[in-house]
């Protein structure tokens, strides 16, 4: 019997601390598989966020530089500008990227910083116990929107990926979901494309992954994955929002 599927080399042997059914570890694996396939483990610098994935450096077997909450794209900018031959990815949650880090994210994209951002959107603040996030959906109950998010009080889910896709400095912007194996593999293809766009120096690349948070959504992992399709993907439509390598169609 030939082994056809196993752990990527760019991940350490540490077991994940994430909750059962969490999407973070799946996305970690996708990023690590891409790093293996592109053979860039010794040129990659990862920048974990403040959030559930702050401990990403326990898992990624690449050099990692922690950033303060929301400042990943600024740390990445400083690092990439100082060492242009290195390949930088920031790994950020919805609070990190679209709340406190909005300015750092938008301006890094707008400057066309050649870094890649992996944006994990699970519509809540996970590590701190399930508070409302910028991407919390209308009517979605969280510990800080106990009556469900109301547009006239808590505003609307922030479509940061779509905003970034309008910026000329952004070279590749895609939104994916972990809802099914096929969609997980599609997300991996975009993550690989994002790294390739960075390596070709074409500008900023961003891959958003809709990810389940069973613990804070208060559902089972299997239900959480269904909710990705029935709720999240309705609010956050999937697709390649921008790809400068594709000729303008028709």
């Amino acid at each position: 019997m030939k082994k056809v599927y196993t752990k990527p080399k760019s991940l350490k042997d540490a077991p994940f601390h994430y909750c059962p059914g969490c999407g973070h570890s799946i996305i970690h694996r996708l990023v690590a598989e891409v790093i293996d396939e592109l053979g860039i483990r010794d040129k990659v610098i990862g920048i974990p966020p403040a959030g559930c994935a702050v401990l990403a450096y326990n898992y990624f077997d690449v050099d990692m530089c922690e950033s303060a909450h929301g400042r990943g794209c600024a740390v990445g900018t400083g690092f990439k500008r100082a060492q242009p031959d290195k390949i930088i990815f920031t790994y950020q949650g919805d609070g990190d990227m679209a709340a406190i880090g909005t300015a750092e994210t938008l301006h890094a994209a707008n400057r066309g910083e050649c870094i890649t951002s992996i944006f994990v959107n699970n519509a809540v603040y996970g590590m701190t116990g399930g508070q409302m996030a910028p991407t919390t959906m209308l009517g979605q109950k969280t510990t800080t929107s106990p009556m469900g998010r109301r547009p006239d009080v808590e505003g609307y889910p922030l479509m940061i990926t779509d905003i970034i896709a309008t910026l000329k400095g952004a070279a590749f912007v895609a939104r994916h979901s972990l809802a099914t194996p096929a969609k997980i593999l599609a997300a991996k293809r975009s993550i690989k494309k994002a790294f390739e766009v960075q390596m070709q120096g074409l500008g900023y690349s961003l891959v958003e992954c809709l990810s389940p948070c069973p613990t804070n959504w208060k559902v089972t992992p299997v239900e959480a994955f269904k909710l990705l399709e029935t709720r999240m993907e309705k609010e956050f439509p999937l697709g390649i929002l921008k790809d400068v390598t594709k000729k303008a169609k028709g």
Partner: peptide, 15 residues
Amino acid sequence: TASINMVLGAAASGV
């Protein structure tokens, strides 16, 4: 705020 974090990133790379 962004600028000081860029300094952190550059310093971490050795410059």
